[in-house]
Amino acid sequence: MTTDSRKEATSPSSLRLVLTLAIAGLVSGIAIIGIYESTLPTITANKARELREAVFKVLPGVTQMQPLVHRDSELVVVDQPDKDEPVIYGGYDDQGDFLGYAMPAAGPGFQDTIAILYGYEPDEKIVVGMEVLESRETPGLGDKIYKDMDFVGGFSALSVEPEIVAVKKGTKSLPNEIDAITGATISAKAVVRIINEAHARWVGQLPAPGSEPPFVLTEAAGDEAGQ
């Protein structure tokens, strides 16, 4: 031990303390910006792909999609929806004929917010598919809302009028009833409630069946169609 280092150990100048932390913070900041910038394209692409796959899954027969928003009391096609603006997706077949909407919806589940996407056919007023996008439901129990294929499959030709009702497994008798999951009643009912609430919110904003916005081949949509 030299005198120098002992002196340092007892009382380094305040400037040195400040400088050390400043340099550490700066280097850390640069590293974080670096990793953020380098992973962002992959993360955005992953999210977009997940969403596209989910839209195609909840709307059988759909091969093209475009984002729609509700502006000035009508549904319009947009390229880039504003941040925090509720978006739904219009699904179209190869000829560009409208098939149905894919509606994102979210609400409280058993542990945390459940985010889902469901397919809706407005002329028949039925839900034709449901996909869980995000959930932290208990593994082995609540996660059956996306692992139990009986339940997920139940969201086909499910009438939303007057509203969807989750009933005890095996007792479905009406077109608006769906079998809940044994051992995951709360999560299953949460999914049903989320769809009912989203439907109630959107039903007045959807145009009359037959007058849906036509498919506009935008550049982005063209890319999707080409894939």
């Binding site: 340092e8 150990a9 380094p12 040195r16 303390l17 050390t20 932390l21 550490a24 913070g25 280097v27 850390s28 590293a31 974080i32 990793i35 953020y36 992973t39 993360i43």
Partner: peptide
């Protein structure tokens, strides 16, 4: 790393690695 600010420095270093792991 001066002794007086070592814990802060450790935390900065750890937090940086955690953020990298998170995004990766």
């Amino acid at each position: 790393i001066p002794k007086q600010v070592r814990i802060s420095c450790f935390i900065i270093i750890i937090a940086t690695f955690v953020t990298i792991a998170d995004y990766t």
